[in-house]
Amino acid sequence: MNIYVIMKRTFDTEEKIAVENGKISDDGVEYIINPYDEYAIEEAIQLRDKHGGEITVVSIGDEETEKELRTALAMGCDKAVLINNEDVEDYDQVSTASILAKFFEDKEFDIILGGNVSVDNGTGQIAPRLADKLGIAHIATIVNLEVAEGKATAERDVEGDIEIIEASLPLLVTAQQGLNEPRYPSLPGIMKAKKKPLEVLELDDLDLDEDDVEGQTEVIDVFLPPKKEAGRILEGELEDQVKELVNSLRSEAKVI
C-alpha cells in the first residue's frame, strides 16, 4: 500500500500560553507531534505492517519541523517530506489545503491519514478541504479501521455514537482519540530514522507562488481569556457544605 500521513507540529499540551506584541509567544516552548496526528502515524504503521508498502509523512512548517518528522520516522514511517511555508502571508487553512493538494497532485496513494483536528488552531478544516480538492472520499474521526481488497471499513466517532462506514480506496481518513495507542520510538528506531530520507521542498518546487496560497482570513488580535479568580472553598460539616453548595448554585450562580 502507498500510505501518506499529514502531520503538524504543535505546542506541547502542557504549555501555558503567553501573548507578546499581539502574537502568541513561542519563547522556550516545547513542541510535540499534534496528538491526533500521532494516532494517524500509528495507524499507518499498523496498516503497512499488515499489508506491506511504504509510509510517507508530510508536514508543512519551518525547518524546526524536521525534529518531529524524525520522530515520525523513528516510530516507523519510511520517508518524510517537509514543505517550507515561512513566507506565506496571512497563512490559514486555505493555504495549507492548497499546498497539500498541489503536493499530492502527482502522487499515487491508496490512503492518506491525518489527525481530525490540531490541538493549536483546532479548526478541523484541513482534511475535508484536502479530500475535496483531491476529489477523493473521506471519513472523519475514526476510532477503528480495517482495509481489505481495496475497501475500507471504519468506525467513526460521532459525538459519542459510532457509525460504521464503508468506502473504496483511495481514501482520506482522520484519526480520533481511541483509534490506537501510539508507540514510543525505540532506540534502534531512532538510529534508523537518522538515515531515512527527509526531503525539504520550497513552494517553488511545487510550482507555487506565495500569492497562490495566501490566506483568505486574517488574525486581527490575539488575547488571553480573563484570568479566573480562585473561588470559595466551602467549610464546615460536609453535609452543610453540600447544602450550601446546592443553595449557592441555585440562588447565587443561578445555574440550576
Binding site: I17, Q93, G122, G215, V222, L224, P225
Partner: peptide
C-alpha cells in the same frame, strides 16, 4: 476562507469573530 468554532461575534465595527486557539488557552479575533 472559513472561520471555525466561533464563540463570539463583533458586529459593531467591521465584522469580526472571536474563536479559541489552543483549546481556549488563548483567543483570536
Amino acid at each position: 476562507g472559513l472561520i471555525s468554532d466561533v464563540t463570539g461575534i463583533d458586529a459593531d465595527g467591521e465584522l469580526a469573530f472571536i474563536r479559541p486557539v489552543y483549546a481556549g488557552k488563548a483567543f483570536e479575533k
